[in-house]
Structure formats: structure tokens, C-alpha cells
Write a protein that binds this DNA or RNA. Structure first.
Lengths: 344, 344
DNA sequence: TTGTAAGCGTTATCAG
DNA sequence: CTGATAACGCTTACAA
């Protein structure tokens, strides 16, 4: 059961260690007969190279670090699942870290990854430009960084996310199509992407000659403690409802906010979609099972993960990274209309 | 920015590499003055030991592998989050793998972990006794295994989970308290723990002199493809509703099944809890936001993760594992009553 | 085409 | 108390 080494294979075949090593690495220096012989025995003995030794020698680890806010979030869990598949495809391992939206935790996560040894870091930053100096310095030296999801960072590297402006713009248009013109926008505090989503919101209204009421753009708590989010959201929604400019639609810009709105409106005996239509960003499976089922803006998690990982591999495999053609990639979202916007 | 090594510290202080190494490992062989001097410089230069080298030498990796079904499941995501915290506490890294409830994938995951190098594996098996021979062999040799969550395995090692029998028994009692005596039980196909949950169900009914109708114990699909689950569940629930022994309560035994029931009942215009009360296992935050809010059986995810990791560390640190007092730990769940069982 | 030997950064043994 | 040296398993000049 113990792991077999090159040395043991060498002894058994009466060859040198380097011959074995070269053969298994398919070097041109080795004759095909010896290769075949060696491979056969390696197979038989179930030889598995010792990763620690290999990477000590090569200065690579085949580990990619991923830092997200929290795995307890359907969207991020989906991204991680997809990245995981990508990692396996490329023969890399994923080391997962969570920042819980805190810059300190995030720094600690980065340090842990560095310490453990990773060839690169994929990160969805705690917030806009969190740990930017550290990341910049890493990216300029030995540890390439790729940013995904929360891509409003000044770091000069690949950034893979969605077109936030366009996504919200289109969602507003959908609401206008069902004659809902008094739309409240729920935003996460401190998240860089909120700004673009707000722009999309404002522009869509302007393009349709509607007035913008600043009170309709609501900043909500977005920690990862669900009770706090609920409490805060309840207050904010109550304010909206009781204002003179009462909304007839709500657009949520984060997964957590979106899925929580329905419960709160139900508590308040407000019917959806009759009184208020609801739509928002969410990648949770559960939107189908909500009552009413929830219309959503769906992010292409698999594509995001795939591209981000692809770019990471590209960086890892490139000697002269300065010469790479760095760019941001903005993917399209899709809108899934369900009962929460089904107004006839 | 490049990483500093023992050698460089040694040169700078004009000492030998071994002295530096020993000092940083707080060996008693080194005088406190030299230790202090060395530590100071190490701090200054931000020395970080090379993990690959260290573990190549020591034959340990400080990696713990975790295999779950899928991260896209609130319960499992919570467990992973908690395990993650535990891992950091003990200075270990978590390598996450997903089996997607397939024995083949699970075997591949195990092989990948082994290949990459882990000191132990924490696993929630794809199903009862999946890959049991492989796991047994590993556990008896170099790679300790701890089982969590799905603990109906014949492997002789620590198993940390909940008391399934008792949890369901108590949930049934709650339903009987609100005078719901025609209870349908939704079970996941092929999951070992289902059996115990069914026993709890049957015993609770018997203890209350109620008849057991086998048709009320429904085996549902439990793959990780949500559309399929929904479709299957819809059929099963329709059958229940239209049977002569129509239930007045539904008890879901998995997170996915439980949270999906409400949406399906809503589609059928069946009111919850008036027509049918609903309760079930779920650790999702979202149960509060559902309409009606959903009564749940909550699993102590943090405790499960904590204990499982603790046991793993114990195993990893024990030379003579045969002599350890192996045992299963069954934790209690808690019942959270909400509107889906609020019958007055 | 194959083998020798050095070295990756540690720790551990043993000698001074 | 400190230092020289070997070893962990692998890759890779360079030598044969």
C-alpha cells in the first residue's frame, strides 16, 4: 500500500533513476522499448509521483487559490463548483479561502495561500480595491492574480465578470414592459459592482423619460449574517412602502437581497406581483420553489469560472507576463421571467 | 519579494542552516540569545518556511481532503464553511472534492486526494458503503478516514452525524401535536440515512397507535440536477394528493426535498399549513423568506464539522491508531417551528 | 540512449 | 550549544 518511488522502480528494472524519470515524462532521450517497459511496471505497481517532491524541484505547486466572500451563497457556491471542475480538467488543485467580506480576513487568506504555496490566486475581492497594494505586488512578481465576479478593481490583470450595467438596464426594461414605472433598487453596501448596476438603473429610467427618485435607490446591509440582513432589509422596505412615492416594483441586485424580499413582503401582506413586482439577481435553484416563483437575472456562473480559470492557466504558463494582452471580459446575463413579474 | 530561505538567513547571520532551523522550531538545543537573534531576522525578512520542502522531508502534507456530494447544497456548504474554519485553526488546508453522489466520481476524488497528498480524508459518502473496500484499506494503512453526515457506513472509524431516528421521531410528534395524523414522509433514494429516518417515522406513529400506510413513505429522486428533482417530486406529490388517504402533513427528509415542496404545493393551489402542514430537514437560510415560512429540523453543522475535524486531527497525530477508542457520535437536531406548521 | 550527480528547502542524526 | 552531513523524491545538466 505504501507509495512506490522512482528509486524502487529503478532497482527493480536495474536502470537508473533518471532513466525512469525521463521515461515517465516521455522524454525523447529514451528509447521506446525502455519507455514501454518502464511504463508497464509503473502501471503495475501503481506508481504515483510524489507531488511535494516534484513541486519542490520545479518551484510550482499545481495549487490555485480561490478567495470568495462566503461559500454559503448560492452564486458563489456555483462558481466554486464550476472552478472545481475546471481545476480537475487542468490537473490543478483548488485551495478555497473565504474573506467574509472583510479586508483583514482577505489579507489573511492571501497570506495563507502564499504560505501554503499556490501558483496563482483567483479572487472575488471583499470590496472595491481591497488589499490592492498586496495584490498588485503579487501580480507583478511571482503570483499571478485573476479577478472574477467583483471586477471593479484597479489591478491590471484579467477580470471576468458580467455586464452589470446592461443586466440591470434590461431588467428595468422588463419591468417597464409590464407597466411598472416606480421601481426601487436594492443595492449591497460597499460592493464595487453596485455602482455600475445603479448606472444601468438610472440610464434605463432616463432613456424612458422617467424621473429618478434617489430614495428609490436603497443601500442595504450585505454582511454574511442573515438575521442582520433580514432586519435591515425589513426596515428599508417598510420605509419604501410607507413613502409617498410607493414603488410598484423592486429590483434586487444581490442574490441574498433578492431571495429575502418575498418573505418580507409576505409578512407585510403585500401581494406579489399585484402590488409590487419583484425581480433580481439570483442564481439560487430555489427561486422556482418560492411562492410566487421569482423572476431572476441569472449569471453564467459556469462560463465565469471557466474563463477565469483559463486565463489563470494562461498566466501560470507564461514566462513573460508583461507581454500578455490583459483585458476584462464582460459576460451577458439572462433574464428568467416567472410569477413575481407575471402581471397581466 | 521572492521567498527567503533558511540558507539566506544562515548566511546573513553567519550561522549554520541547521542552527537556524532548530531555532525557528524552538529546539532546546539552541541558546535563547541565538534564538532571539534568529527570530528577529526571520521576522524582519518575513521568512516563511517552504511547505513543499518541509512536507517532503516529514512525509506529511498538512492537507486534509474533504469529500461531499455537492457544494451546491446549503447544508453541505455550511459544513464546508465550518470545516474550513477548523482547518485554519489547526493550521491545515482543506482540499475539497465533490462526488455528486456517484461512486465513480467518489473514487476519482479519493484518488486525486491521495495523489495530491493528504494526511487524512473526511468524507460524507456518496451512499451507504460506497467505495468501502478502498476506504477500509486506506484507513487501515497510511490515510485515516473520518465519516460525517452520512454515517451509515460499515467502516470502522469515527463517524459524526445526527441522530436521524430521534430527529424524525420528534418532528412527527410536533405534527401530532397540531393534530396532523396523516403524514407523508419524503425520502431521498439510495441515501443510507433514510432508513433510520424511516424507522423514526414508523416508531413515532406506532407509539401513538397510528396505522402505517406504506404509500405515505415516498422515495424521491435525489440527484443533484434540480429540474429532475422537481419533476419527480411533482409527480410523487400529485399521487399523494389524489390518493384516498390524502395526507394532511408532509415531512421532508432532505434539504432539497423540503425546500421544494412549498413551491409545488403552491402551484397546485394547496394551502400550507391549512390543507397540508410542512416540516422537514433544512439548514438553508431561505426558509425564513419562504411563503409561508418553513418549519425545519436544523442540523448542528458547525458542531458536526468541529467534531469531525477534531477526530481527524486526533487520528493524524496518533502513531498507533489501532488503540484509539473509535466511536460514532450522534448529535441532536433542533426543531424550528414556523408558519408552515402554524395551525391554530 | 543511458547514467551520474547536483540541487530544490527542509529536518534529523551525530559529531564537535 | 552549534555545525556538518545525509536524506526526503524528483528533475535536469552534463558525462559516458
Amino acid at each position: 500500500m505504501r507509495r512506490i518511488t522512482l528509486k524502487e522502480l529503478a532497482k527493480e528494472l536495474d536502470l537508473s533513476i533518471s532513466t525512469i524519470s525521463k521515461a515517465l515524462n516521455d522524454s525523447h532521450e529514451i528509447s521506446s522499448e525502455t519507455k514501454a517497459k518502464i511504463r508497464e511496471l509503473a502501471e503495475l505497481r501503481n506508481y504515483q509521483p510524489n507531488v511535494q517532491a516534484k513541486f519542490l524541484k520545479l518551484g510550482k505547486t499545481n495549487n490555485i487559490g480561490v478567495i470568495i466572500s462566503t461559500i454559503v451563497n448560492p452564486f458563489q457556491a456555483q462558481v466554486i463548483e464550476a472552478m472545481h471542475k475546471e481545476a480537475m480538467k487542468y490537473g490543478f488543485n483548488l485551495i478555497l479561502m473565504q474573506s467574509l467580506d472583510s479586508e483583514e480576513m482577505e489579507e489573511k487568506a492571501i497570506q495563507t495561500l502564499l504560505h501554503h504555496g499556490v501558483d496563482g490566486i483567483l479572487i472575488s475581492p471583499a470590496f472595491c480595491n481591497s488589499n490592492i497594494e498586496l495584490l498588485t505586488s503579487l501580480n507583478n512578481n511571482d503570483c499571478p492574480i485573476v479577478i472574477f465576479d467583483r471586477i471593479t478593481s484597479d489591478l491590471n490583470t484579467f477580470k471576468i465578470g458580467i455586464d452589470n450595467f446592461k443586466s440591470v438596464y434590461n431588467a428595468v426594461i422588463e419591468l417597464l414592459n409590464i407597466k411598472r414605472d416606480k421601481i426601487a433598487l436594492l443595492c449591497g453596501k460597499n460592493i464595487g459592482i453596485s455602482q455600475e448596476r445603479i448606472s444601468g438603473f438610472i440610464t434605463a429610467l432616463k432613456d424612458n423619460s422617467l424621473e429618478i427618485d434617489p430614495k428609490m435607490i436603497v443601500q442595504c446591509r450585505h454582511d454574511y449574517c442573515s438575521e442582520e440582513i433580514d432586519k435591515d432589509l425589513k426596515i428599508k422596505i417598510t420605509e419604501l412602502i410607507s413613502s409617498d412615492n410607493r414603488p410598484n416594483a423592486i429590483l434586487g441586485t444581490t442574490d441574498t437581497l433578492t431571495t429575502r424580499v418575498l418573505g418580507i413582503l409576505a409578512d407585510m401582506k403585500i401581494s406579489v406581483p399585484e402590488d409590487i413586482a419583484v425581480i433580481g439577481f439570483s442564481n439560487s435553484d430555489i427561486v422556482n420553489s418560492l411562492n410566487p416563483s421569482l423572476s431572476t437575472i441569472l449569471q453564467p456562473t459556469y462560463k465565469i469560472a471557466e474563463l477565469a480559470f483559463e486565463k489563470m492557466i494562461e498566466l501560470v504558463n507564461t514566462k513573460n507576463r508583461q507581454r500578455l494582452n490583459i483585458k476584462s471580459i464582460l459576460l451577458d446575463t439572462s433574464i428568467q421571467l416567472r410569477q413575481s413579474t407575471a402581471v397581466y
